[in-house]
Amino acid sequence: MTYGAVIKRYLLAGLVSGILCALYLRILGEPVIRAGLDFEDSLPSEGPADPELFTRDQQVLGGMVALVFVSLLLSFLFGTLYAFLRHRIINGQGDVRASTTLAALAFLLTVVVPWIRYPFLPPGMGNGETVWKRGFWELLLIVTGIVAFVLIQFGIARLKGRMSGDVRWILAIVVPVVVIGLIMFIFPSVSDPYPDGIPAQLIWSFRIRSLGSYALFWAIIGIFGGWLVSRAAATSSPGSPPSIPLKDPVPQG
């Protein structure tokens, strides 16, 4: 398959994912966000409130539209990565499994790892300084985790011939977990004092539902995108070249 053919299908998957995630957050996420905003409004004001430029309904609609565009951008980046790696990781297992595996890995490295170290905060918590500090360390943790994972996989791949494929497969899972866990431990914490009286259920409902939206996005990208590519590959000519023809440097166990 060509690069363009792969990208078109992942953009379609990104559009579907963006719409479904926007509906998910509107139905399941918005009640928790409104509860957080109501709690914030109930706190004693330290000064005159800033006038709202947009109503909450306008903010929700704008957020839903922005989410669709972000989903398209992320699906484009993921599709590009999959087109580059497709002939290396497909390995007879099919596009659906290969795409889902890669999406699951992206979910773990870009969502779960920073979520564990820097859990999401509902509206009404944190301040401008901690928000920027939290965002900086989250981004740095994501980049560091991805780089560490890639370097570990390359290092394990070079061990072919020195140990069995089963051992290398175990190392490819265990070593990244240990190394990234240590990286998470080293990264500084960014603590935000919880406002007095805020329900713990509100905090965890926001965190779990936010995590669920990311899981929904990556599941649709991985499964539906892989299914679209698989159907297209089945109808293309058997002799068509891979998306990006490169020599496979990853040893197979």
Rank of each mutant, 00 (worst) to 15 (best):
R56P: 01
P245H: 11
S189V: 12
R9F: 05
P188S: 06
V6Q: 03
I198E: 01
K160Q: 04
P44S: 13
P44K: 07
V131K: 07
F107P: 02
P188L: 09
P114F: 04
A215R: 15
I223M: 05
R97W: 08
V150G: 04
Q252P: 03
V190R: 00
A215I: 14
V32I: 14
R231P: 10
D248G: 13
L20N: 00
G126S: 03
G18F: 03
V70R: 09
I223S: 00
P238E: 14
G197S: 09
M125S: 03
G128V: 14
L141T: 05
M64V: 05
F39A: 02
Y214L: 12
R9T: 07
T130W: 12
S42N: 10
G135Q: 13
G226N: 03
V250E: 08
I7T: 09
L11G: 03
L171S: 11
L43Y: 12
F107C: 06
F120H: 07
M1R: 06
S164R: 11
R97D: 02
L102M: 10
L151K: 07
L109P: 01
S230D: 13
R231T: 13
R117Q: 03
F76H: 07
P51Y: 00
S45E: 14
R56N: 06
V111S: 09
S243E: 08
V177E: 13
S205D: 09
I19Q: 00
L216S: 07
A66Y: 10
G145Q: 02
V147A: 15
F54K: 08
R117V: 05
R209H: 00
I220D: 01
R117A: 05
S240G: 13
L25A: 03
D192E: 15
L159S: 09
L74R: 00
G197D: 07
S243H: 01
W218N: 05
F206K: 01
D57G: 11
T144V: 12
L73N: 08
K160R: 09
G239Q: 12
L67I: 11
N127P: 05
R231Q: 15
P44Y: 01
L139V: 15
I173V: 14
S243L: 06
L28H: 04
W204L: 07
I198V: 13
L81H: 03
L171W: 11
V250M: 09
L72F: 06
V178Q: 06
Y194S: 09
L140R: 03
P199W: 06
F136H: 12
V70W: 05
I146L: 11
S243Q: 07
S191D: 15
I170N: 00
P242F: 07
R209A: 00
Q58P: 00
L108Q: 02
P119R: 10
L74G: 00
G79A: 10
R134M: 15
P31A: 12
A233H: 05
M64S: 08
A49P: 06
I220K: 02
L139N: 15
F76W: 11
L20S: 01
I27Q: 11
R97S: 10
L109R: 01
I221E: 04
R117T: 07
R26E: 08
I173H: 14
F136Y: 14
